[in-house]
Computed example of a mutant assay.
Amino acid sequence: MSQPVVDDVPQPQGSSPSIALATSEDARQRRKIAELEEKLQVLESGQAIKRRETNYYISKGRAIQCIVTLYDALEDLIAENDRRCDDQQSDEDSPVHPHSQECLQFGYIALSNALSWFHSRASELEYDEYLQMLKKLRQGADGARGDDTSKLKSLVADWVNRELKPHPPVDTDDKSCRGFVNDACGRLLCPTELDWSNPIVRAGIRDHAGGHVVTEMSWPTFMYEKYTANPDNLEEGLFKSSPLVQPYKAIFTSPSSAKEFANEGDGADIIANNRRASKDFHSGKKVKTHLRLALSSVTSWRSIDGDFDYIPFWRTIVDFFERPPGRAAQRKVEQLLAWWTRKVFGTSHRAELSDGAKANMSVNALARQRAQLDDAAFDSD
């Protein structure tokens, strides 16, 4: 039997389906290239989405340790919220939660408020994707803390040198010469119940001698206004020192605004501060935190510095503001926060405007004029 012959033209209808209809090699190659390019485009599109998602999580994670929790793990916050959901579904009475669990739950609520999408997304994602999200958020948080501690290292040295004028000045790069071996840094780190000017106290602190061991159970001098505490009223002046406000302003407004603290009092220019903060935010400037670590001789981040444990110290500060023992303490906390608002953002005189003054301002005057013209046109019709 003779073999079928395929000409350069399509075969008539009814030809065997095993016979290939001839096409040019160039056409076939163009189609293959187009298919590969389409697959590559789909693949790159997915990778681009994944990269954008990763960058988004990392960028959002940078704020966690500033506005949510400094030390608690995200997994612990989530586990505490899940545990409470399980308790609500049980028939048992609502249990009394220990303080540690209350802190975790407050942290989860703060996280959900700061990242409004987090709660729903954590519920919707597949488990592997959920783990990747937490990993990237942690990566962002750790990266921000690393930036904070390294940049504040030089800023704090500048502030100490400018305010205390030590001789020799505090080295802006070498942290090994800080801490209690440095008289200026030691004065700021010294517990308020001890007198740094006493040479016996200085020697005892440096030697970790009995009665001079520095732990998180003491308020450091740098946390007090003018570095002086009243032993009969330890709340007086606490959290009102310039070395506290300056790092805060460096973090949340701009490093340059922190330099203005000493001269601005309570009447700072809010508009100038906000413009500066916006400019620095959009230009990508980074701002830093953790004052005690910057004053110490520790060269890398860790939660325990000798006998001083940062974790319970941080929780003591949080409790001071969030768990006042009564109404009088609550009023003092509110007054202190109002003081911080003035120091950071300046004083707004808007509330001092009378209704009459507001009515005569050009925006309101123009609105009245337009309404009057509209009324006149309506009456003429």
Rank of each mutant, 00 (worst) to 15 (best):
K60V: 04
K60I: 05
G61L: 06
R62W: 03
A63C: 01
I64K: 06
V68W: 06
L70Q: 14
L70M: 13
Y71F: 13
D72S: 02
A73G: 06
L74S: 03
E75H: 02
D76K: 10
D76Y: 05
D76R: 10
L77C: 02
A79R: 12
A79K: 12
A79E: 12
E80M: 14
D82F: 03
R84W: 12
R84G: 07
C85T: 15
C85R: 15
D91V: 09
P95E: 00
V96K: 10
P98F: 07
H99V: 12
H99L: 13
H99G: 04
S100G: 01
Q101G: 02
E102M: 00
L104M: 02
L104T: 03
Q105V: 14
F106P: 00
F106E: 15
L111G: 03
S112P: 01
N113M: 04
A114L: 08
L115K: 06
W117K: 05
S120N: 14
S120E: 15
R121S: 14
A122Q: 06
A122T: 11
Y130M: 13
M133S: 08
L134A: 11
K136Q: 15
L137I: 06
L137R: 03
R138H: 08
Q139R: 11
G140M: 03
A141Y: 04
D142Q: 09
D142C: 09
G143T: 07
R145Y: 05
G146V: 02
D148L: 00
K151F: 11
K151D: 13
L152D: 04
L155R: 15
V156G: 00
V156M: 13
A157H: 01
D158F: 10
W159I: 13
W159M: 15
N161A: 12
N161I: 12
E163Q: 05
E163A: 05
E163N: 04
L164H: 01
K165L: 06
K165S: 07
P169M: 03
P169K: 02
V170Y: 03
T172P: 13
D173A: 15
D174I: 04
C177D: 07
R178A: 00
G179D: 00
V181F: 00
N182L: 00
G186M: 05
C190P: 02
E193H: 10
E193A: 08
D195P: 06
D195Q: 13
W196K: 02
N198D: 15
